[in-house]
Design a protein around this nucleic acid. Structure first.
Length: 541
RNA sequence: GCCCCUAUAGCUCAACGGAUAGAGCACGCGCCUUCUAAGCGUGUUAUCGAGGUUCGAUUCCUCGUGGGGGCACCA
């Protein structure tokens, strides 16, 4: 919070100054951490560099003159044109105290967005596979971060429990069921071949003897859906709602949304099918899309439009979907559909994450549900562990194409960076256990806190102060990656501090209490931040 | 053919257009009679190529090359 206040203060004063110099539209003032090679400063801004041209002066002169207007803030101007800032020990101590006083509120924002966040939405035709771990981590962690920022976030998993794939699944399971009973049966062309189909068939009850393929399909869907729910729960991922496509059909939502689109003049008939005019002049799509096939059946697209309309009907102001890159071609038509329904551009957006290339050693693992060759999320979490898996995926930005070696993930889980972070928490807890044994008590005085001036202490205090800005960055990027990076850096600073500054020192009670307070702050923040990533903060390791 | 993403150290990944490009893993050498060595210190190694914009480019633009994905009345 202190940085946000400082940034606003700087900006208003620098902009006022720029205005007095005749520049009405100055650039924003960005605060950055000072580089490591300049330990005399905590923060810097390159604002004078960007203002040199509009002010028609040399950058360094701008910095020097601007610095003069910042009375009360300890700043200095350095070449080629930075303004550097040193925070006072009292300011850093005040920030630490606010963290300790209410860890759950630290870094909280007063956001006002109302977001429906849909992610994973894996097909219920088989188990959840590893690729979904990325979307699950991304969505769940992002939801937690956005909520911490004060926004209203409603998470959903969309279940395609209707349509052709359910029929195919039913036929496949029935074939396996019949085979198990010794009957002559074949999996139809394009059916599901994985062993898990046999497992599903084996779980069918007595009365399944009388079932048709549709009944087998329904049975399989319900079984898979229950598995998905368990997998997500075990992965620490919760959804406010599991939305069934079949609910839309029951409520005639497709007819209603089609009627609405017709009323808006966005729909036409051609070749016996019903089309949505998605292209258009403002449109993003390159061609129109079918809503009702010429055999009268609705497309997936129409159902999806009805679903997104439903989200809006239920109160969401912003719709954010998380998709794998294999669906990115679907984005333009979905955007056009939302605007066709009369909603502003930007009401709907998708976070596209690149696909995970799975390897076993050097061998590429092909993922196909139909062929039955895939690694399940459950398998990975059981072997690599929840914490390691979630942190691993959180560290990657959505746009990063990544190679994921399953063997490495299992074998080397102890080398996952998550342990580096968790170890900080365990170490702090250990110190507090020892402090209790030694009977160290009492709060640190303000003077003692302000006297935390060892380089590693200062670095930690400063890092703690960046937390709110990190979360702001996560919101902007729509990704938890910045938080994972931040945690790694914070952990590194703590381990250095731990080596260089012995906390419990009976000869220096004031210093001991102050350092314990710093440790408590680090512990609280690590626990809070790991919690946002869905990762545990162990007290012992 | 067209569209989207991407190329950073031996490997996996970071870095709002700013100062000496950061971590972890791997490899070499040191550090446990004091709060947990899952740690610390130290050393080696990187921006695909060619142009352009800029005071300044890993970042933005163009072209090229390599990789991933997509171009249905499938979902």
């Amino acid at each position: 919070m202190i940085l946000e206040r400082l940034q606003k203060d700087l900006e208003s004063r620098l902009h006022a100054w720029a205005k007095s110099e005749g520049v009405d539209t100055p650039t924003p003032v960005l605060l950055k951490p000072a580089p490591d090679n300049l330990p005399d400063f905590d923060l810097s801004t390159p604002w004078p560099l960007s203002m040199a041209k509009p002010l028609k002066s040399k950058p360094l002169e701008v910095a020097q003159r601007a610095a003069l207007t910042l009375e009360g803030i300890p700043v200095s101007a350095t070449p080629p044109g930075f303004i550097n800032i040193k925070l006072s020990p009292e300011t850093l101590a005040e920030n630490l105290k606010s963290l300790i006083a209410a860890p759950g509120d630290y870094g909280k924002g007063e956001g006002s967005r109302n977001i429906n966040l849909e992610f994973v939405s894996a097909n219920p035709t088989g188990p959840v596979h590893v690729a979904s771990a990325r979307a699950a981590t991304l969505g769940d962690s992002l939801a937690r971060i956005l909520k911490h920022r004060g926004h209203a976030v409603h998470t959903e998993f969309y279940v395609n429990d209707a349509g052709r794939q359910v029929e195919t699944l039913g036929l496949s399971v029935k074939a396996r069921y019949d085979q198990a009973k010794g009957k002559d049966a074949e999996i139809p062309e394009g059916g599901y071949l994985g062993d898990y189909i046999k497992d599903i068939a084996a779980k069918a009850p007595q009365e399944a003897e009388q079932w048709d393929a549709a009944a087998f399909g329904q049975f399989a869907i319900e079984l898979n859906l229950a598995g998905h729910k368990t997998d997500m729960e075990n992965f620490g991922v919760t959804f406010d709602r599991w939305f069934l496509e079949s609910e839309l059909h029951e409520e005639k939502a497709l007819d209603l949304v089609l009627k609405k689109l017709k009323g808006l003049g966005k729909v036409y008939e051609k070749d016996g099918a019903t089309w949505l005019d998605t292209g258009g002049e403002d449109g993003e799509d390159d061609k129109d899309r079918v809503l009702i096939r010429n055999d009268g059946r609705p497309t997936y697209f129409l159902a999806d439009i009805a679903y997104h309309q439903d989200k809006i009907n239920r109160g969401a102001k912003e719709l954010i979907d998380i998709w794998g890159a294999d669906h990115h071609g679907y984005l333009p038509r979905m955007k056009d559909a939302i605007t066709a329904l009369g909603y502003a551009k930007g009401t709907f957006q998708a976070i596209i994450h690149q696909l995970v290339k799975l390897l076993r050693g050097k061998e590429v693992v092909k993922m196909s549900k139909r062929a039955g060759d895939f690694v399940t999320l459950r398998e990975l979490v059981e072997e690599a562990g929840l914490d390691a898996t979630r942190y691993f995926f959180a560290m990657r930005t959505p746009n990063a194409h990544m190679n994921f070696d399953i063997e490495l993930a299992k074998k080397k889980s102890n080398e996952n960076p998550v342990f580096y972070v968790q170890y900080v928490h365990a170490r702090v807890c250990s110190i507090f256990r020892e402090a209790k044994d030694r009977g160290v008590e009492g709060e640190a005085s303000d003077a003692a806190l302000a006297a935390l001036d060892h380089p590693t202490e200062r670095a930690l205090l400063l890092k703690l102060a960046w937390f709110a800005e990190v979360l702001r960055g996560c919101e902007k990027e729509l990704s938890p990656t910045g938080l994972a990076t931040y945690l790694g850096e914070l952990a590194g600073l703590y381990h250095k501090f731990y080596e260089q500054c012995h906390v419990l020192d009976t000869d220096a009670p004031d210093k001991t209490k102050a350092r314990l307070t710093l440790c408590a702050g680090v512990r609280a923040l690590i626990a809070e931040a790991l919690g946002l990533l869905g990762v545990s903060a162990p007290e012992r390791m």
